[in-house]
């Protein structure tokens, strides 16, 4: 009995220490555990994928498909960057003395856990701080923006999906300068996501199927990343603004390979972004708004 009481007190003390540890220390612990299990998760996904492919006799085709999808995503990014409008945009940016950030390199990553915890929408990828991933970096699929990096460990990163109602992105309509803020609305029972673009000026002209892209304001997301397409527009409760329901460009059910949009610093192995995470793992307050 006495032994049990002593251990119970010891347990409470351990919990107390755990709660009072600084965030950096707890992230080192949880990041290490995530890294250990990431190899098992990667292996499980590979084995499951291999079995699926072999059973359906499409193994070679699936490898080819994966290679082509990666290539396709990179090419789409190239096309997006080479649009003539982009030049005009850059000129305007130069006039506004904003940093042109459309040249950021992409890092391909594979999903190793599709639904991390069931409490908020998050996926885990197999690239971490060792590969230049840092908190707050945007993550895209070949179709469009899917979210931003929240937690990073040396070999994995957790990506907060844009379906999460607490994640907000500065956005504008692709064909005009109408700006607003896009927020996730969760996932409905058809397992399809929906976003909402708030604070659109009341007199702004918004049409169905208008492309919604990141505005680049706020500095987290580079401008021009496709978010989705306008489904319908309504006046908000205050009567001062409009809001639009947005169909996401990305297909969240089919996520397999995603791309982290790196900064020049994080892409450079000797850059400061890399150095700052060599000591362990990082979690961004901004990543969890």
């Amino acid at each position: 009995m006495k032994r049990n009481i002593i251990f119970f007190v010891f347990f409470l003390m351990a919990l107390g220490i755990l709660f009072s540890l600084p965030e950096e220390q707890t992230n080192v612990l949880s990041g290490s555990i995530r890294d250990v299990f990431s190899f098992q998760q990667s292996a499980l996904r590979r084995v499951a994928g291999w079995f699926r492919a072999v059973l359906s006799d499409k193994y070679e085709l699936s490898l080819e498909n994966r290679r082509l999808r990666t290539q396709n995503a990179k090419l789409q990014n190239e096309i997006r960057r080479s649009r003539p409008l982009q030049e005009e945009n850059q000129e305007l940016r130069a006039l506004l003395k904003l940093k042109a950030d459309s040249e950021r390199p992409l890092l391909a990553a594979e999903l190793i856990v599709r639904d991390v915890n069931g409490w908020w929408h998050m996926v885990r990828i197999n690239k971490g701080s060792e590969d230049g991933v840092r908190p707050d970096l945007p993550v895209i699929s070949p179709e469009g923006l899917i979210g931003q990096v929240a937690d990073v460990s040396p070999h994995t990163a957790d990506v907060m999906l844009l379906t999460n109602p607490k994640l907000k992105v500065g956005a504008r309509l692709g064909r005009s300068d109408v700006v607003g803020i896009v927020r996730g609305q969760g996932i409905n029972f058809q397992e399809s996501a929906l976003y909402r673009m708030d604070f659109i000026m009341k007199d702004a002209e918004v049409s169905r199927a208008d492309e919604v892209v990141t505005s680049g304001l706020g500095g987290v997301y580079p401008s021009g990343l496709v978010i989705g397409y306008v489904e319908n527009v309504q006046e908000d409760a205050s009567g001062l603004f409009q809001y639009a329901e947005i169909n996401p460009a990305a297909d969240f059910k089919a996520l397999d390979i995603v791309f982290v949009v790196l900064t020049e610093q994080s892409a450079d192995p000797s850059g400061p972004g890399r150095r700052s995470h060599d000591a362990g793992t990082s979690r961004s307050g901004g990543g969890k708004p």
Binding site: F8, A14, R34, V116, G118, W119
Partner: peptide
């Protein structure tokens, strides 16, 4: 209690919940 503590730490780390 050991199972609770170790299991809890593993769970929080892997499911991205605040540790503890």
């Amino acid at each position: 209690l050991s199972a609770a503590f170790i299991g809890g730490i593993l769970s929080d780390s892997l499911f991205a919940l605040p540790l503890g």
